[in-house]
Amino acid sequence: MCLAIPARVVELEDGNIAVVALEGVKKRISVALVEDIEVGDYVLIHVGYALHKVSPEEAARTLQLMAEAGVLSEELAEIGESAA
């Protein structure tokens, strides 16, 4: 519940919305809580909101670790379910 998952911003839309890419899944999230986000930035996402900008290295190692711990698939499933 408290986990935040890193993803790359691939598109910015009006109304504080960004499209992020995560393991091939694209998802629209809110960037209302962060400042100065640009396409290509990595952000930590929690319940559909970007909480924080992170470096690409931090994003890569967090994703790797989440995959190892088996939580990445759970998080992705959660995100996927709501994408409908």
Binding site: A4, S30, H46, V47, L51
Partner: peptide, 12 residues
């Protein structure tokens, strides 16, 4: 529900 991480999305 939730701690400070989850609160800002509710406010938004």
């Amino acid at each position: 529900i939730g701690f400070e991480t989850t609160t800002p999305p509710t406010a938004v």
